[in-house]
Design a protein around this nucleic acid. Structure first.
Length: 214
DNA sequence: AAAGCGATCCGCT
DNA sequence: GCGGATCGCTTTA
């Protein structure tokens, strides 16, 4: 456990810890903190909800149909940030897991702002409460100021603009699982993980095709 | 060269 | 609870 005087680097996650199956990486990431620094300041979020995505065997994964310019980062080394653009107006962020050449990642779906509250509020004026600031994947990238240019950043490098830090560990008994949000395939696998009772867990919605009538 | 659709959010009912 | 906004990536002709 960390002592008051620990330098920030000592809390930084290392690549080896993340070079594992996305399902294990997802559970590991709960309770960890993502911190981003821009000219506007620093915001840090404690992760409360994540989802695991695998590669060629996962039809919900961006890597299911092979390597393209868009998903290239997911094929690289673990511990890097994969940022993609969706719905014409939003960014979502993932932590790359597994090893070089084998795709896999963990989508960051929600967390609580633990530093830089004022900057976070200014970035998301629509938020109705502080718990709502990073409650959702695009909301989370919003408070951290993550955009296209952050794709590929190494989260294990102390000099990166975005860093991944260890936090207070979440006891396994506090971890809940269920199907992933908004995906219309592979609904049988419970690869969404969240911290029981956290106010920063997004509300569940089923994927479009899966909600079709009859 | 073109069209469809998505790992979503927000405002309105 | 529901639908519109909005645009880049991927697939298909």
């Amino acid at each position: 456990m960390s002592v008051a005087g620990d330098p920030p680097q000592s809390r930084q996650l290392d690549r080896a810890a993340l070079a594992v199956d996305p399902i294990d990486a997802a559970k590991l990431l709960l309770g960890c903190e993502l911190e981003s620094t821009t000219p506007s300041g620093t915001v840090r979020v404690r992760l409360a909800e994540v989802e695991a995505y695998r590669g060629g065997d996962d039809p919900a994964s961006h890597c299911y149909r092979g390597r393209t310019p868009r998903n290239e980062v997911m094929f690289g080394p673990a511990g890097h940030l994969y940022v993609y653009f969706v719905y014409g107006m939003h960014f979502c962020a993932n932590v790359v897991s597994l090893t070089d050449g084998v795709p896999g990642a963990v989508l960051l779906r929600g967390g609580e702002v633990v530093e830089g509250l004022d900057l976070a509020r200014s970035r998301r004026p629509a938020a109705r409460s502080d718990a709502d600031l990073a409650k959702g994947p695009a909301k989370l990238t919003g408070v951290l100021g993550l955009e296209r240019g952050h794709n590929g950043v190494d989260l294990t490098d102390p000099d990166s603009p975005v860093r991944l830090l260890a936090g207070d560990p979440v006891p396994p008994s506090a971890i809940r699982t269920g199907p992933r949000v908004g995906v219309a395939v592979a609904m049988d696998v419970p690869w969404r993980f969240w911290v029981d009772g956290s106010p920063a867990v997004s509300t569940y919605r089923r994927g479009g095709k899966a909600t079709r009538r009859r």
